[in-house]
Design a protein around this nucleic acid. Structure first.
Length: 715
DNA sequence: TCCACTAACACGTTTGAATTGA
DNA sequence: ATCAATTCAAACGTGTTAGTGG
């Protein structure tokens, strides 16, 4: 029986847990509770309205079906292999999901990440995969943000959600935002559903779904011929390699023979040996060659029609209703027109334990690879109150004039919040990207139940929820490839003028770095790329009056100073879901990442670029804090963005049995602090603007946005 | 010598622009 | 002039294969 696992890791990582989980035992309650208590009542969401269907909790009955589960099972029965290339390779089969149980009016963000299943490296031997060594070093965790995100629940439920745009690469220095994986390793894709409003708190109603049949082994060349056959028979792009295609082995052999024949002819002509030449030509006549080639070819099985089986696996989310989700939905809905994303809560700091009834299908054909059942039983979730990391991180906010922005005012001056403002999506059809295929899902045949995470945190603390420094990794702007945008990874710690200059040299003069308080927690935000009066925004005690539904930014008049900013936002004809008042980040919380913002192009590059690199733990290029040119309406649209942040979720299999695979060459993958990668393309007028468009022009195969979740350590 | 990886290749698909006709 | 249907070309996706390097 197939099963699905939910990874409520994010729920442990957000501040909202502390604020709104009235019954939750906060392991580190002091700062959390204190902050909550200090929060003005005005900022607290009102209690849920009972019997209000509109306030349907997103945690109830959320179900995700793997639409092409049948195809996945076919591959899994053989041992799914995924080609990874330097330039990035799509997954096939792709993840095609059907979502249900969502609140139609709320907006959600859908993420895909791929986590290693174990600490082993594999080799194809004797017709099967054998673990032959330890896994290689942890790679940057990147999350693929579905291009439609954020979209309403109605949108997600109205069509099949496909992650076909996600690309896998083995290029550890990839700047295209592809998901970086090691070759010859086993991985498990995971899908995460996050309420857009909860991104403000980054956590909360997030749910994760795992489909065991989608685990795969990465290769640079197919090892198992059966997989090759399945791919050729299933993937439309490989149609040419089918038996009846012009690129089939038969045809290729024929071409090769003809080529040899031509060469032989040439040689014969040169040698004036007409007899031999004619004999050769006769021997290599197409009919004979084709017959010969056909005889050598195995009969390809009749695979499913390219595509996507109707057999679907059903996954029912049984996550216990989370308190924050019940609160203030109507309240927020009435107050916000733009979705703000706050990473301030630190996606990765929650650590906890939960159990799951996860059970995997037995279709996996990886002989020596431990199945994930056991490893799914407990998943490390970082504790949001992990006090081992003393330095809070500043979270710059994206300035907006939108009056509908949820109040992110912090009642704690030392708290800093990063907010993304989702621009209002285009009217009507904007929420229905045409690239998405209509649903062809069939009734699910598999249902997966999961148990909500335990409240207690039993997992060891990660090496550091907020490493000494975040890497600064420049992302050269690939101006040509519209589908593969490069992103500058924002660095949030350790302001480094050199880094700033470096970033500037990459053509991002507006790149902004935000002090992420790696040292002493600053009491104010710095907005290097915004006008001076905006660059340092403190969040003193928020008065109810100041608790405007928009982000309250002292020294900033949203109406006056942000007039130009407001112009950059598209008009809203979209019914925005509710957005909660933003609880300010936990003061003792260790938000692992920072967000950099940029303002109008006219703003001089006053970036305080910060070099976040952690030289002791990372071998990756430095990540640089870049700017989101959110206020440049004239700039060309870039459909993708890459966000780097620490491990959004716990490792899939942290408790892998050590006996089966050889000992890992490296320690278990730790969680990594959140880093938001700014769009290096100054053309992006508004953060997440791309999320509302599926294609921009030409032959667009937009690589959807990513989250790079790590400034990973290299051991 | 083996193995993993890469780039080039050919073929098919996808997509949008250009063209044509009503 | 407008719109829809058709055609075309470029870009992309795919597996194969020869070559390279450790």
């Amino acid at each position: 029986m197939l099963s699905v696992e939910m990874y409520p890791g994010l729920t442990h990582q957000r501040m909202g847990d502390c604020f709104y989980r009235g019954e939750r035992v906060c392991t580190f309650p002091s700062a959390c509770d204190m902050a909550a208590k200090a929060l003005p009542q005005r900022l607290l969401p009102p209690p849920a309205i009972p019997n209000n269907p509109a306030a349907k909790s997103p945690t109830s009955e959320v179900k995700v079906e793997l639409e092409n589960a049948h195809l996945w099972k076919q591959f899994s029965s053989v041992g799914t292999e995924m080609i990874i290339t330097k330039k990035g390779r799509r997954m096939f089969p792709g993840l095609r999901l059907k979502l249900s149980g969502l609140n139609p009016s709320l907006r959600y963000i859908l993420l895909l990440d791929i986590v290693p299943l174990d600490n082993a490296r594999y080799r194809f031997q004797g017709g099967g995969w054998q673990a032959v060594g330890g896994a290689e070093a942890k790679l940057p965790d990147r999350v693929f943000i579905h291009p439609d995100s954020p979209a309403t629940g109605a949108h997600w439920q109205s069509r099949t959600v496909s992650f076909h745009c996600a690309k896998l690469t083995n290029n550890t220095l990839d700047s295209q935002g592809h998901i970086i994986l090691h070759s010859l390793h086993r991985y498990q894709p995971r899908v995460h559903l996050i309420e857009a409003r909860d991104v403000l708190r980054w956590g909360g109603a997030q749910r994760s779904f795992v489909f065991p049949e989608t685990q795969f082994l990465t290769v640079t060349a197919y090892q198992n011929n059966k997989i090759t056959e399945l791919k050729i028979n299933s993937n439309p792009f490989a149609k040419g390699f089918r038996e009846d295609g012009m690129n089939s082995k038969k045809q290729r052999d024929a071409r090769l023979k003809r080529k040899v024949s031509v060469v032989a002819d040439t040689l014969d002509i040169a040698n004036c040996d007409a007899c031999d030449s004619a004999e050769l030509r006769a021997a290599t006549s197409s009919a004979d060659l084709q017959a010969l080639a056909l005889a050598s070819l195995p009969r390809l099985p009749d695979g499913p029609p390219c595509g996507f089986g109707a057999d679907g696996a059903s996954y029912r989310d049984t996550l216990v209703q989370e308190h924050p989700l019940d609160l203030g939905q109507d309240f927020m809905a009435s107050q916000i027109s733009d979705i703000g994303i706050s990473m301030a809560d630190g996606m990765q700091d929650a650590r906890g334990t939960y159990t799951s009834t996860f059970s995997t299908t037995s279709c996996s054909s990886f002989p020596s690879a431990p199945l994930p059942q056991s490893s799914f039983s407990t998943l490390p979730v970082r504790d949001s109150s992990d006090a081992s990391i003393p330095q809070p991180i500043d979270y710059p906010s994206i300035l907006t004039s939108s009056p509908a922005l949820p109040s992110s005012s912090s009642s704690t001056p030392s708290l800093h919040q990063t907010s993304f403002t989702f621009p209002t999506p285009p009217p009507s059809n904007s929420s229905s990207p045409q690239s998405l295929l209509s649903s062809t899902s069939s009734p699910c045949d598999d249902t997966y139940h999961t148990i909500p995470e335990a409240e207690d945190s039993s997992f060891p603390a990660p090496p550091s929820a907020c490493p000494p420094g975040l890497q600064a990794e420049p992302f050269p702007n690939s101006s040509v490839d519209q589908c593969a945008p490069a992103w500058i990874h924002p660095s949030v710690l350790n302001p480094d003028p050199a880094t700033a200059q470096h970033l500037h040299n990459y053509g991002h003069p507006q790149a902004a770095a935000l002090p992420c308080s790696h040292g002493a927690p600053p009491a104010s935000f710095a907005f290097p790329a915004v006008p001076p009066h905006m660059q340092n925004l403190s969040f003193p005690n928020v008065s109810p009056a100041s608790a405007h539904h928009a982000l309250h930014l002292p020294n900033l008049s949203h109406q006056a100073q942000g007039s130009s900013l407001a112009a950059s936002f598209p008009p809203s004809s979209f019914t925005h879901p509710s957005s909660s008042s933003l609880p300010h980040p936990h003061s003792s919380f260790q938000p692992p990442s920072c967000l950099a913002v940029s303002s109008a192009p006219s703003v001089p590059p006053t970036a305080h670029h910060q070099n976040l690199r952690n030289p002791s733990t990372s071998s990756y290029p430095p990540v640089e804090m870049a700017a989101i040119s959110q206020f440049n309406p004239a700039a060309p649209y870039r459909p993708e963005r890459v966000l780097h942040h620490p491990s959004l979720l716990p490792q899939l299999d942290p408790s892998l049995p050590s006996s089966t695979p050889p000992p890992a060459l490296y320690p278990a993958f730790p969680s990594y602090p959140l880093r938001l990668c700014q769009d290096p393309h100054t053309s992006l007028s508004i953060p997440f603007r791309h999320l509302y468009r599926q294609h921009q022009h030409g032959h667009a195969h937009p690589q959807a946005p990513y989250l790079d979740m790590s400034s990973r350590a290299v051991f």
